[in-house]
């Protein structure tokens, strides 16, 4: 497996004028995508799908250079049947084939010369993605969630060196998503293949990816490891791609955190590192409080300066009431 899957140099992708979009969907992107699992994040319209389309070769950049180094694996790694396969946002299923035929068409289901074995492998995929009862259904007869699962099953059955997935499992019920993600993860690890996917789900990015690309308005605003982006984001804009964060400059830090952290630059604290402690002598007063499950959101007033700020923090188990005096504790 090469260290780099793609190298992009000043890649731009023109807007689709037919749908009234004249601005570039991608604007002079220079990027290096490593082997492993990479997540592309960004707000709606940031260019995530456009970037995946360019990587998949479905769209040709209007300018710039795309060097696809993943195709080297086709020659070097005999264990892969395909250099690249994908699961596009709409599934990209073939309307005239049944679910089982989709899988039987994939090289991964044909590694055995014996037809019976081949069928078994396709059956396995259907079973793993809870589609065995829908094996003879064509895409239009499947629900959105079933289509999404079939698309992912097909992509995994492709046995390709690199997989691209555009918002995978979007329409799948949340309860079963972790199960399917673990199937994807196991497949990637077992086959030593790579995955590039885009998503809006921050938990998935943190859990599944090793490398993150942040896009905004068709431009790359950050690249780095997921851990680095989570723990030490360069700015609040990028930090928010991986979920809620409290952002401080030096002055704010001294007011709100009472100099618990002595850092020269601006920094962020994730909710799990922040706790509100009731304190009768505290300089902070609760204005409002909202519990959101894994974290809580509280609006505080700094009494001496009368300034206000909303904090996301770890739920302490205490019910905070408006007017209550508190202090912020930073957890290591």
């Amino acid at each position: 497996m090469p260290d780099s899957l793609w190298n992009l140099e000043n890649v731009s992708l023109a807007g689709d004028s037919l749908v009234g979009n004249s601005r570039n969907r991608l604007h002079e992107i220079s990027l290096h995508i490593p082997a492993g699992v990479t997540a592309i994040v960004g707000y709606s319209g940031a260019g995530k799908t456009s970037l995946l389309n360019v990587l998949a070769g479905m769209e040709t950049p209007s300018s710039g250079k795309v060097e696809s180094r993943h195709s080297d694996t086709r020659l070097s790694a005999a264990e892969f049947s395909l250099p690249l396969f994908w699961a596009p946002q709409d599934g990209g299923l073939w309307p005239h084939l049944t679910a089982i035929q989709h899988l039987n068409a994939m090289p991964g289901c044909q590694t055995e010369l014996n037809a019976a074995n081949s069928r078994k492998s396709a059956d396995n995929w259907l079973q793993l993605f809870d589609l065995e009862h829908r094996q003879n259904a064509v895409p239009r007869e499947l629900s959105k969630g079933e289509q999404a699962r079939l698309s992912i099953a097909r992509a995994l059955a492709a046995n390709s060196a690199v997989l691209l997935m555009d918002e995978p499992l979007t329409h799948v019920d949340p309860a079963r998503k972790p199960k399917y993600w673990s199937l994807i993860r196991e497949h990637i690890m077992a086959s030593n293949s790579s995955l590039v996917f885009c998503t809006h789900e921050t938990a998935v990015v943190i859990r599944e990816s090793q490398f993150v690309i942040c896009l905004e308005n068709g431009q790359v605003i950050h690249t780095g490891t997921s851990q680095q982006l989570y723990d030490n984001p360069p700015n609040v804009n990028v930090a928010q791609f991986l979920g809620p964060i409290n952002w401080f400059d030096r002055e704010a830090s001294s007011i709100w955190l009472a100099d618990q952290i002595s850092q020269q630059t601006d920094f962020g604290l994730r909710p799990e590192r922040t706790l509100l402690i009731p304190d009768e002598n505290g300089a902070l007063r609760i204005l409002s409080f909202h519990f959101s499950g894994s974290y809580a959101e509280t609006k505080l007033e700094h009494i001496p300066s009368s300034s206000e700020k909303t904090f996301v923090h770890r739920p302490s188990g205490n019910v905070h009431q408006p007017g209550q005096l508190v202090r912020i504790q930073v957890l290591s």
Binding site: G57, W86, G92, M106
Partner: peptide
């Protein structure tokens, strides 16, 4: 559906004849 067509084009790069034919 361009995604559907492109999926077939990607499958065409397979090393297995049956998949290519498909």
């Amino acid at each position: 559906n361009s995604g559907t067509l492109h999926s077939a084009k990607l499958l065409g790069n397979a090393t297995y004849h049956k998949s290519q034919q498909m």
